[in-house]
Design a binder for these strands. Structure first.
Lengths: 205, 205
DNA sequence: GCATGAGGTTAACGTCATTAACCTCTAGCA
DNA sequence: TGCTAGAGGTTAATGACGTTAACCTCATGC
């Protein structure tokens, strides 16, 4: 009987795939072991606990997610960047619902200051922030715009993945509608701000 | 030793309170039984399973949530209604994070056509729809606006409750900023739509 | 070749949810 | 008033988990 040659990485990857297939709440060590053709305790030679495994899956997912957003925004600006980044996020969540849920749950509570989850989250935020820079918002508004964006995109993707939208209207249409809405609103802020600035005086800072 | 005089309702209510305190993922039959001064199996005289209990908690939560939104919007219109409804939702989620999570998880999958969760969800949607009516949107846009609103509010509340926002900027400010943003955008849609209609001709539908 | 340890296995334990078997108040009726 | 049935508890037992301990066995480096 040949050895399975498992490694922490291969276990994590198999876990990530499985969690996407069966969902975060149905995931179990037994199922993963079975999937890998091994008995449950064998997994503990490569990871220290289920919590550890889930955390690794989350870190991996978050890194991939950050890459996807970065790549989508790369080379685009303004409305284009927003649309591409948003679509990339939605696609990721739809294709990896289990991993996204895992990442979402883990992102809120890093295990320590050297948790790889932290830089991954920062990369995601940095991408959104870079994208927003194309709208030339007042720096005091940036954080609010960022939070709104995350809220809207997270909320939409999450509800769509959970089947929370009824099917009587196109979800694709709703998504692009929302993105257009956000885009127009962001442009308006800039427009009115510059208008005001131009009209009154010019104190950028 | 006096009897505990439990009922399905009292068990559900105690469960709802407990799930808010310790969180959805930490909830267990044993803890609830202990809280009620009873052994675990006693609970099964009043509910059929943990899934049943969770479902009851979700239904109860969703009904309360629907009431809160309705009451907040009641008697207000336009921006006021939006702000009040949104604030009511955020408050509910912050005060009942466990129940909201439970409701959210259950809302996607009703157990049958007579599931009390269904009318409760409909009531929530109806409230938001009523609120949106104040913006006189084109009927084809209503569903998109509704989904956007749910996404943004759900995403924001959920992330705030999970501690997903850093503390370096006021979350309150971000929330009202977001609401203002949404309000302005919705007003603009109406404005441009009527402007177009007035300018060109008057062909509604 | 051979020993040693990485990487499996089986066995056993504690915690859950759940069910079965049993007990005991208490309400309702003769 | 006293009896009885069943509502509403209890303890004990079962099976699915996660996890750990004890053990076994390749396969690799000397």
């Amino acid at each position: 009987m040949p050895r399975a040659r498992l490694t922490p990485l291969s276990v994590t990857e198999a876990g990530a795939a499985l969690i996407d297939e069966i969902g975060f709440e149905n995931f179990s060590m037994g199922l993963l072991a079975e999937r890998l053709g091994v008995k449950t305790p064998a997994l503990y030679k490569h990871i220290t606990s289920q919590a550890d495994l889930v955390h690794r899956i989350a870190a991996r997912a978050l890194a991939e997610f950050a890459d996807a957003i970065r790549d989508a925004i790369q080379g685009r600006a303004g409305s284009d960047a927003l649309a591409a980044g948003a679509q990339a996020m939605r696609t990721y969540v739809l294709e990896h619902p289990g991993q996204y849920a895992t990442a979402d749950a883990a992102a809120a509570r890093p295990t320590g200051p050297d948790d790889p989850i932290i830089p991954a989250v920062e990369r995601v935020v940095a991408s959104w922030a870079a994208m927003l820079r194309g709208y030339h918002l007042d720096s005091s508004q940036e954080i609010h715009a960022l939070r709104m964006l995350r809220s809207a995109l997270h909320g939409f993707s999450t509800q769509e993945a959970a089947g929370g939208f009824q099917i009587d209207a196109s979800i694709d249409d709703s998504f692009t509608w929302m993105i257009n809405f956000l885009d127009r609103g962001l442009q308006d802020i800039t427009a009115t701000a510059t208008a005001t600035t131009t009209t009154t005086s010019s104190s950028a800072r």
